[in-house]
Amino acid sequence: MEVKLDKRYPLDVDPARAWVILSDLKAVAGCMPGAELTEQLSDTSYKGGVKVKVGPAVAQFGGIVDVLEQDTAAQKMVLRGKGADKGGSSASMDLTAVIEVDPANPEHSVLHGDASVIVNGKFAQFGGRMMVQVSDMILLQFVENFRQAALALPAAAAPAGTIQSAVESSASASPTTASAAAPKVASEINGLAIAWALIKNWWLGLFGKRS
């Protein structure tokens, strides 16, 4: 099944630092709960995996992530990931992620992600109806990790707010620094937390609220 996600997450981080994290695939992987890059195959290609646990169902996708495009000027990354799980599931994702300047506050940024995720096999069959909700929860955890990683970077010397300054500041921060700044996160996606959040949202939905 295919899930299309187009999301904007406002961050209280300046665009420069956010781009430092986004442009470093290892740092991005570090922010994704349960994900890791295990091997660099080329400048733009990595081997890695992601482990997702929902209740008793565990899927461990192993595969390849390719950076199709890295546009520093536009602060845009285009990625394609493809993987399979031993238990009879496979998944692929096309993701375009952009760091935008928050129109309301040039000191802040917006992480804009546009993704198409295709899941096949058992994971689609069992998890199909929860895919959107689970994706939302995973992304919220990811964004929080991303934000913390960016905040942990030293603030940019130049005043933030322009693309130019952001580019300069990103150039000054080495990828190693960004990776090091990635926070320690749970080694796998926390199924119980997801389940709880789903139940909570459902209850709130009954009373006309959405968290």
Binding site: M1, E2, N120, Q125, F126
Partner: peptide, 11 residues
Amino acid sequence: FDAQGNLMGNT
């Protein structure tokens, strides 16, 4: 079935 050929109701 979904467009990818996953059978969505096999339990």
